[in-house]
């Protein structure tokens, strides 16, 4: 892996602007119908001001489509009495709202120093190798999207990997390989806490404020190893 850290003339100075991204994909509407519409109204009613429901409604769109297409933004704008631009301005700000078609399972690997010091970066490289070229967008089978994640606030379990934002502790490369094999074969391993992650659509529903994706349950033994360090209270 060769590298050099030369500064680069910014594109706005050289006039070589990056090619305009291909027209963004969209879906045919309507996205929010029947049940989803009713959930949207229920969510809005929970807030003192309607606009506060914007991110929850975008999660609701994601729970229907698997990502947030412009059609979804248009519908949310209409529901909240905003312009599509206002909605898009918000949607583009947050990394958990996916603006392109995404794998059913978003695999996030933390490479922030607390994890990288214990192998997070190498784990990410390995995941990229296993999942292939396009995995940072979506794998050809539509199963995975790989994301390099910033600190997930689980540095005691470093390196941390999350599948649809449920965490797996101290993930080794071998465990990663087994996990991906398992998911491909339809056996999603149980997360360290929170049960078996559902698809991104299911998790998005939870995030929209529509209740738990899995029934409440006590701590479970992590897929990798038992609870090790970090004994409370010391």
């Amino acid at each position: 892996m060769t590298e050099a850290g030369h500064l680069r003339v910014p594109q706005w100075q050289t006039g070589q602007l990056a090619p305009v991204a291909a027209a963004r994909e969209d879906v045919e509407g309507p996205v929010l119908t029947g049940d989803a519409r009713r959930l949207a109204e229920r969510t809005i009613a929970k807030y003192p001001v309607r606009r506060s429901a914007l991110v929850p409604l975008l999660y609701l769109v994601q729970s229907e489509v698997g990502w947030v297409p412009r059609q979804g933004m248009r519908e949310v704008a209409e529901i909240l009495g905003l312009t599509t631009a206002e909605v898009e301005a918000v949607a583009t700000f947050y990394t958990m709202l996916k603006l392109h078609p995404c794998g059913k399972y978003v695999v996030s690997i933390c490479t922030n120093p607390s994890c990288a010091l214990l192998g997070g970066r190498a784990l990410y490289e390995r995941a990229k190798e296993i999942l292939g070229e396009q995995c940072e967008h979506i794998t050809p089978d539509g199963m995975f999207t790989l994301e390099e994640e910033e600190c997930l606030a689980a540095c005691d379990k470093a390196p941390v990997l999350a599948v649809n934002y449920l965490f797996y502790d101290r993930v080794s490369q071998e465990l990663l390989e087994r996990m991906i094999e398992g998911i491909r074969a339809g056996h999603v391993p149980e997360a360290a806490r929170g049960g078996v992650p559902g698809e991104l659509k299911d998790v998005s529903r939870t995030l929209a404020g529509m209740g738990s994706q899995t029934p409440p349950q006590p701590d479970t033994v992590p897929a990798g190893e038992g609870e090790g360090g970090g004994a409370p209270g010391g």
Binding site: S114, L118, D156, A158, G230, A231, P232
Partner: peptide, 15 residues
């Protein structure tokens, strides 16, 4: 105190 990185037992320690 959240202690992480190159320690033997990264974790939360109350003190």
């Amino acid at each position: 105190f959240s202690i992480s990185g190159k320690v033997e037992r990264p974790g939360n320690y109350e003190a």
